[in-house]
């Protein structure tokens, strides 16, 4: 029992479970799933489908945060990828040809890879703090997305393109499979090869990792490229879901939601250990929360207040000082400088 309680997934799962329970009590048909035209419909399916882009972005973000980094540009990459693929498709003679759709998606993903590489170069090669390095693309990326769409909303009429965002495979949304595929790739790369160890090592201590022979630069580049790719795929899902690209609003706040999902999932912003499954649950919690708030009829924008509280609580729980303050509040005297200094003594 104690082991269960201590498991890193305990809290995320518990939160998700209680959210679902609340929904069930509030509206028992929340869990009802119906089959129509060989597709499943229902709130749970919606959560999976609408949460897919966020889950994708969060997978990439998890690896970046594990290296003690952060990628603020994912929202912009989502917009750029969607914009580029919609632009290419809308320029085609027959918007529904498979080769056109595939090449559009290919081009968009290639561009996302390149944007990830750009972030990676700034962080790993130029040595700029990640938050700053990715801020550049966050600012400029919105402009680039609008440049691609010429400030308009590009709509496409291509059932084949719409398939990845709205279609179904074996009755489940295609997007679920996309997420599953990327998650499997990420898990395979990090847990079945030594890459996970290297990422965690670089996140713990880049210099010690370099001196242990790890190619820190390569590892950093790789995670930013992977994060770019994830954001690019998410961008395709988002634009395909609505069959249009909006350079201004697509992927807005994704960076923040993704960071939140990662943190809820148990990965510390200080780098090191990362939990991909935890992240997925974190993303699901955020999506469920949004759905719940819609359902009980509170204006959806208020989700932001709830998110603010969640961020704060999770960070406070993660903060060692906070925990210590709670524990030691009454039995030690209060020396401000000691807290910084004690860590040096115990080495």
């Amino acid at each position: 029992m104690r082991q269960l309680y201590k498991h890193h997934l305990f809290w995320p799962v518990a939160i998700l479970f209680s959210l679902l329970l609340f929904n069930f009590i509030y509206s028992p048909d929340f869990f009802s799933i119906v089959v129509r035209d060989g597709k499943l419909y229902g709130s749970l399916i919606d959560i999976l489908n609408f949460g897919a882009p966020l889950m994708l972005v969060s997978i990439g973000m998890t690896l970046v945060i594990a290296t003690k980094g952060i990628d603020l540009s994912v929202g912009s990459i989502v917009a750029i990828a969607g914009a580029l693929s919609c632009l290419i498709i809308s320029r085609g003679n027959d918007q529904n040809t498979l080769s056109l759709v595939l090449s559009a998606m290919g081009m968009a993903l290639l561009l996302s890879l390149f944007l990830g590489l750009w972030n990676g170069l700034l962080v790993a090669k130029a040595g700029i703090q990640p938050i700053i390095a990715t801020l550049i693309l966050m600012v400029a990326g919105r402009g680039i997305a609008q440049l691609i769409t010429s400030g308009q909303i590009i709509t496409v009429n291509s059932p084949k393109y719409a398939f990845i965002g709205t279609g179904a495979l074996a009755a489940l949304p295609v997007s679920v499979f996309v997420v599953a595929l990327m998650l499997a790739i990420a898990l395979l790369l990090t847990r079945k090869s030594a890459l996970g160890l290297f990422i965690e090592a670089v996140g713990c201590n880049p210099e010690a990792s370099r001196l242990s022979g790890i190619r820190s630069v390569m590892v950093l580049m790789l995670v930013y490229v992977f994060c770019g790719l994830c954001a690019g795929i998410a961008g395709l899902l988002v634009s395909s879901n609505v069959s249009s690209a909006d350079g201004n609003n697509a992927g807005l706040w994704y960076e923040l939601d993704a960071i939140l999902a990662v943190v809820i999932g148990g990965t510390s912003l200080n780098g090191g250990r990362f939990y991909l499954i935890g992240t997925i649950i974190g993303a699901l919690i955020i999506q469920t929360l949004t759905t719940t708030i819609y359902m009980i009829g509170i204006p959806p924008e208020i989700t932001l207040v709830v998110k603010a509280c969640v961020v704060l609580i999770v960070c406070l729980i993660q903060s060692e000082t906070f925990r210590k303050t709670l524990v030691h509040r009454w039995n030690t005297r209060h020396y401000t400088a000691e807290r910084e200094a004690t860590s040096h003594v115990n080495q």
Partner: peptide, 17 residues
């Protein structure tokens, strides 16, 4: 600063090089 990977286990710290 240049040796231990503080958040990792003894096992991981040993095998990393």
């Amino acid at each position: 600063t240049e040796g231990i990977l503080d958040e990792l286990t003894v096992r991981e710290n040993i095998i990393v090089a």
